[in-house]
Write a protein that binds this DNA or RNA. Structure first.
Length: 269
DNA sequence: CGCGGGCCCTGTGAGC
DNA sequence: TGCTCACAGGGCCCGC
């Protein structure tokens, strides 16, 4: 579900509702969604003020008034929403913050690939790579030079660039006319230049449409994204390429679905 | 030590 | 209608 545009959309909709809010109570229904194991989240958060909320990679980073931080990762099916007290608490709701104004922030994640990660004073970025929106082509070129993996697989590595996922890597490679199975270290300067621009263009357009909802994604207000209607390759196997009319192919790389147009994204050069 | 594969989970939709 | 199976936006951990 959540890649950079979706996570940013959650932050954008959550921020005005929680920035400056006091967490009056914390209800943790499953302690195993919290990392490190044994963290007393209730103690850390109760009666704290949320002074800031921001995105780093695919992480939603909260800064508290005591300077401590934690982040929530949405995994595949995570939702972070603001709801009223009387709205039904759905199955798989693992964490609830009661705010001073009577609203609740709820974290719900059926597959539990997401979770809550206590940082304290640790760096929210961890070992993550640079943000794609401010990425420089020479920087990406240097990183891709260091690996023999397929360019598709390399771009999914959050240590290389932080925030891209399966949808936007496929979309960006298509926009740049690059074959997904091309070895990362074989891309030339012009290709990386084009790829850098394509990544930014695709992410910017996706953000403008509040991300992609294939199934689960909603923002903090429960609103779905609309960018899935504008995908040019992702989840379009067998359909005509919107650029050249060729048939979109689906292959599996590193266990992930990969969609591309064999005519626009040629194997050679 | 880089890399590929397995695995962690639940829900859904296609196919029989 | 009901069952089985493949698959899903992510990422950690384990051998090789």
């Amino acid at each position: 579900m959540p890649e950079l545009p979706e996570v940013q959309t959650v932050v954008n909709t959550l921020s005005p509702r929680v920035t400056g809010a006091t967490i009056r109570a914390v209800t943790l229904h499953r302690i195993d969604i919290v990392t490190p194991i044994g963290t007393d989240l209730v103690k850390h958060l109760t009666n704290r003020v949320i002074s800031q909320i921001e995105r780093r990679g695919k992480r939603i980073v909260f800064t508290l008034d005591d300077g401590n931080r934690f982040f929530i990762h949405l995994g595949m099916t995570g939702r972070l929403t603001v709801e009223s007290l009387d709205s039904e608490i759905l199955k798989h709701t693992h964490l609830i913050f009661d705010l001073h104004d009577g609203s609740q922030v709820r974290f719900r994640d059926p597959r539990r690939f997401g979770g809550v990660f206590w940082l304290g004073s640790d760096d929210p970025a961890g070992t993550m790579g640079p943000e794609p929106m401010t990425l420089r082509a020479d920087e990406l070129f240097a990183k891709l030079k260091k690996t023999k993996r397929f360019v598709k697989t390399a771009l999914l590595d959050q240590k290389l660039v932080a925030g891209l996922g399966n949808i936007y890597v496929d979309e960006a490679l298509h926009a740049a006319g690059i074959y997904p199975k091309l070895r990362a270290d074989r891309l030339n300067r012009q290709q990386v230049e084009k790829l850098t621009v394509a990544i930014k263009t695709v992410l910017k357009r996706a953000l403008k449409h509040r991300g992609s909802t294939l199934r689960d994604f909603v923002d903090a207000d429960g609103l779905k994204g609309a960018f899935q209607k504008l995908h040019r390759v992702y989840d379009r196997e067998g359909k005509p390429c919107l650029t050249c009319g060729g048939s979109i192919k689906r292959i599996v790389l590193g266990g992930r679905s990969t969609h591309f147009c064999p005519k626009c994204q040629k194997r050679s050069k």
